[in-house]
Design a binder for these strands. Structure first.
Lengths: 358, 358
DNA sequence: CTGAAAGCGCTTACAG
DNA sequence: CTGAAAGCGCTTACAG
């Protein structure tokens, strides 16, 4: 070995204090005199001491760490959520660890087990298809961004999909659209949005909602579904996609068919990703405010960890139907370039004007 | 307390063996008889034993864990790299942990320190601006995806930016383009690409390369820079952007100015992100093969960890100029919809044809 | 406010 | 192939 890493024993020797005093000073315990604190900090800096977190996790009663599990890093909806979580954790000085559910699948380990093996104080699951049996009942846990599949009694914080669908359909109907299509896909979130869109459309008998899509909720799938929908229902004047990338696929399908957006066809996404805000797309979308979802989820988790009872001091706009407590946040509508007035009716089908790409 | 988590002592008691035997069986040590192994595994399953990883990190000599540090999760170039890393680690049974450099900035901790505090066996830095002083000389470390700023003697595995720029310019020149613009931004990668593009352009005196951009390499910045470039240099027939999102901004600028792509203007990105492959964009781009970069970086790191000497048994296509060993991988060109033949010369400036959006 | 002792749950030699 | 002992670097009561 080159030379052993310095431990708190080395620091204690150098600072002329006891081992425990070093531990307390390093963690910022208020019951340490100013003089000793600086002595310890100086000694630690001089020796280049790095606290061994494995040791402190093992010895301590808590880790001041919150784990976030996302199911797929490639789907960036978790980014604003993570930022919201971070913001809510800052005032409590809690550490954040991120795991992708699939990253260590070659080890055959469950991501929840992985987090627990390092004794996180609590867990935020921004993921759908995790095995709920892997979660011990005592673990503070909040499911965020989705209400799907969760352990009995676990809290969920998510956007209100029904309200989001209503906003989208109100927007489109307000622009005169009556023949609307919905692009969906697999996954609990897409399913929830489809059901919400169908319910919102059913409130008005004059509105028809054609639905297509069953594969992954990707841009490619949105493109294919939109092509099919527009060919089977040429009187469609507006498309509401389950998410922004599917809407991007719909834009590609529109271009392919020579339809101008929004003059001939309005297109809406959902999620309010950075993509939707881009100068090239300027996509109308429903904003689920995932940053606020993250903030609320983390705030709730902290209360659960501190044992202040999540159910009683719950976040705003909460509904608690029996055994599945959840907080639903209100989404908002962002109207941009891709939605406009429905074209005047000219018959069931209109000629596709030739149009250059881009 | 509800009830204590079972430890290997409980498992040992239940299986009728010693504590150490349990430890060996659980880790798959080959020197454990089949009968005892199954007895231990059964007992562990029955008790719901979860190994405490903090304890094993503290007690063991290695952690079989490789850390990956990315500087910004919002920039998805690291995704294929991470997948390549994962693939290379699978056969060695190594665990992967991911950290974003900024995720715990509120704790004031350096991400390298964080990784070391849990004693990773080695580190892959897919990040530019990390403090190289924080890295102990003994730590196996590979910088991946960039050759910028790294600790003395540390390996870098990256795409050959000079070769990539040459490919892009050859492609554009082959299509007849001579008035080319380059969109750049801050960051070591953008700088490397700008210098490479300038060098490649300089090889042919008939080719002019106008350069713009100094802010973040974002789509918004690409949009603004492209607008300015196209107004100041109306004879530009092709744009090479530092990355795909900046190219997306250039597409938005082209639409704004009524330029058809690729008839009036060719646009190229770099990075080969999923975005570039999308049906809506079909963006021509340079593919740095970040998955292969990840594979090579992880392969090298494993050799460094195992002490098999990275410098001698280095990966293919390696150049080792003295103290900064690096492996450069060859990028390839992906030609799609957004690049085409240069328009016939009609004078210095051409009228901007009106064109509907989308 | 401070210090000596016990212990967190594992892994590692080492003797059988 | 197996088991008793020491120890990894911390935190936590607990007595001063």
């Amino acid at each position: 070995m080159a030379h052993r890493q310095p431990t708190i024993i080395d620091v204690a020797r150098r600072a002329g204090v006891s081992k425990s005093l070093v531990s307390m000073a390093l963690r910022g315990d208020p019951g340490v005199s100013e003089a000793r604190r600086t002595a310890v900090l100086d000694a630690a800096a001089q020796l280049g001491h790095r606290p061994n977190r494995a040791a402190s996790i093992l010895a301590g009663t808590r880790t001041d760490t919150v784990g976030v599990i996302v199911d797929d890093l490639r789907n960036p909806w978790y980014l604003p959520l993570l930022e919201g979580v971070r913001e809510a954790l800052v005032p409590h000085g809690l550490r954040l660890t991120l795991t992708d559910a699939a990253m260590n699948r070659h080890l055959g380990s469950d991501p929840v087990d992985d987090a627990l093996s390092l004794r996180v104080d609590g867990l935020i699951m921004a993921a759908e298809a995790l095995d709920p049996r892997a979660v011990p009942a005592e673990l503070p846990l909040v499911v965020a961004g989705t209400r799907a599949q969760r352990p009995a009694g676990a809290w969920a914080v998510a956007a209100d999909e029904a309200a989001g669908a209503r906003l989208a359909l109100e927007h489109l109907r307000g622009l005169g659209h009556r023949r609307i299509a919905h692009l969906t896909g697999t996954g609990g979130s897409a399913r929830a949005r489809r059901e919400a869109a169908e319910a919102a459309a059913a409130e008005d008998p004059a509105t028809s909602l054609a639905v297509d899509g069953e594969g992954a909720p990707t841009e490619e799938a949105g493109y294919i579904s939109a092509l099919r929908l527009l060919r089977e229902h040429p009187d469609t004047t507006a498309i509401l996609a389950a998410n922004d990338v599917m809407a991007m696929g719909a834009l590609a399908a529109a271009r392919e068919l020579g339809l101008r957006v929004p003059e001939d066809l309005s297109v809406m996404g959902q999620d309010a990703t950075p993509l939707a805000a881009s100068p090239l797309l300027r996509l109308s979308t429903v904003d689920p405010h995932h940053d606020e979802v993250g903030r609320a989820a983390a705030g709730l988790l902290v209360r659960l960890i501190r044992g202040e009872g999540g159910a009683t001091s719950a976040p705003a706009s909460t509904s608690t139907p029996g055994a599945t407590p959840e907080a639903l946040l209100e989404p908002t509508l962002i109207a941009r370039r891709t939605t406009g007035p429905a074209p005047a009716e000219t018959g069931s089908s209109q000629p596709f004007p030739a149009q250059p790409p881009n």
